[in-house]
């Protein structure tokens, strides 16, 4: 059975690195994997999407509307834009950061209000949290991607060490410590968001 993950955000937020780390991880678990990216013009601050698919045999490199098991959104408006791609029982993990697109900046359009609440009212399983603040805590807003992966890690059975190893293999050596820290913060936040306080305590104790 093929599983579909989408990583959406704004060009420049580091969606490609997040998908690269996921791809590495699934590869080490002997899955067939495809990771689809878009380069070029849309990377200049535009809406960007990366597809990660894994399973016994993966054919299509892309995920279509109504097919995503998990959407990880790096920005709130992008969560709303791509929610059509989510499956009925899919999970939407979103950073609650807002980045104004040009039409909002120039005053042609308005940034929608209460997006998270509206998504939840639609019946979407939303796991939203402020990944930017956590990233800044480890020293760089660029770590938003890894903070989000930390949260995502709760949806898989991989060990923490396996995640760390995948991160290590994809980032430059001098950024490894910062990124591992970002991952841990995201993972910790995940316990809170997912209300897995019990798991968290037992994890800390062990």
């Amino acid at each position: 059975m093929t599983k579909n993950i989408m990583i959406v955000g704004v060009g420049g937020q580091g969606t490609l690195l997040a998908s690269k780390i996921l791809g590495k991880l699934f590869l080490t678990k002997d899955y067939d994997v495809k990771v689809s990216e878009v380069h070029g013009m849309s990377q200049r601050g535009g809406s960007v999407v990366t597809y990660v698919r894994y399973g016994d045999k993966v054919y299509s490199p892309i995920v279509d509307k109504g097919e995503a098991d998990i959407i990880i959104s790096f920005e709130l408006l992008e969560a709303a834009r791509w929610v059509e791609y989510l499956k009925k029982d899919g999970v939407l993990i979103t950073n609650t950061q807002q980045i104004n697109p040009m039409p909002v900046i120039t005053g042609v359009s308005k940034y929608p209000e209460n997006i998270k609440k509206k998504l939840m009212d639609m019946g979407v399983q939303v796991e939203g949290f402020d990944a930017l603040t956590l990233a800044e805590e480890v020293g760089s807003p660029k770590c938003v991607n890894i903070v989000l992966l930390g949260h995502l890690s709760h949806h898989f059975d991989f060990t923490e060490e396996e995640w760390h190893e995948a991160i290590r293999s994809c980032v430059k050596e001098r950024f490894v410590d910062m990124n591992i820290k970002a991952f841990e913060l995201g993972r910790k936040a995940g316990y809170t968001v997912l209300n897995r306080i019990g798991d968290f305590i037992s994890n800390v104790i062990s």
Partner: peptide, 11 residues
């Protein structure tokens, strides 16, 4: 998502 969303063209 029912509302019309602002586009995010590259800039």
């Amino acid at each position: 998502f029912k509302e019309e969303l602002p586009a995010r063209p590259p800039a």
